[in-house]
Amino acid sequence: MQKLISAIVADIGKVLLGKEHQVKLALACLLSRGHLLIEDLPGMGKTTLAHALAQVLGLSYKRVQFTSDMLPADILGVSIFERDSGQFRFHEGPVFSQLLLADEINRSSPKTQSALLEAMEERQVSVDGETRQLPEPFFVIATQNPLHQSGTFSLPESQLDRFLMRISLGYPTREAERALFLGVDPRAQLQQLKPRIDVAALKKMQSLVGQVKASESLLDYLERLVLHTRQSPECAVGLSPRGALALLHAARAWALIHGRGHLLPEDLQAVLPSVAGHRLQGESGDGIQLVERLMRQVDIIAA
């Protein structure tokens, strides 16, 4: 299991150079059945990461580029009258895939955004009064441009909350970039990636996440972290119970990726910025800064 996971991480690492941490986070997010939001500038490898993940995990992959004039039907699918059979037939939209890359999600209108977000939460879509199950597993990796860029509709908090993690890739290191210059085109490499596991193995891995042990001491630490976000005057909005649960799940997946049967405080700390960053709101500054202060202030051992 451990070997398999390192192999998956290494495979993606070949395409996305020097981003091991982010790759692991993305993997942890998928293992804990969460959706991932990648926020970064264009051209940083968001799409590459999503594509590589789908490739390595052997998932069916579709990509939707969101635009401001998109309608929900463009994602969910439409019923079209077919002359041959004289009936309406439902044409599935891109949402009917195992891994959906929703590129630049914040460029579309809120109506379209919410159609996707509903599908994410319920793992089913209702079209023409008929409820259709989405494939299993179902992941959404959404990317969004930083909010100050023009032509964006920011996602409301309630919809941000649907994403288990929000990560950003950032610029590559000098060595990574040099390797990128020297090496072959990552896109070509992407095509060569072979699936390491199938859907059954992925599901088994997901079930293993739930078995990672969380001790009393660790739950105490989690409790203190959550309580601090709710009580600290710095945080306008504290972490919801869903947020706290998301933190625990993601940390479990993180521990599994690192081959541990039990959680360590480091696991919580590793996923905390990605899980809590988009859920917390500070009086001033970004959620990420808040999370960093939170990690510094809350004692791991005792209150």
Partner: peptide, 30 residues
């Protein structure tokens, strides 16, 4: 606190006396 945490706290106090104190948010391994 659970006993293990109390023991670790004791360890941290001794380390602090030896001149190197653990910061609140610093994980044991860090």
């Amino acid at each position: 606190l659970p006993p293990a945490s109390r023991l670790y706290q004791k360890f941290c106090r001794r380390m602090a006396r030896a001149g190197i104190a653990r910061r609140p948010g610093e994980a044991p391994r860090d």
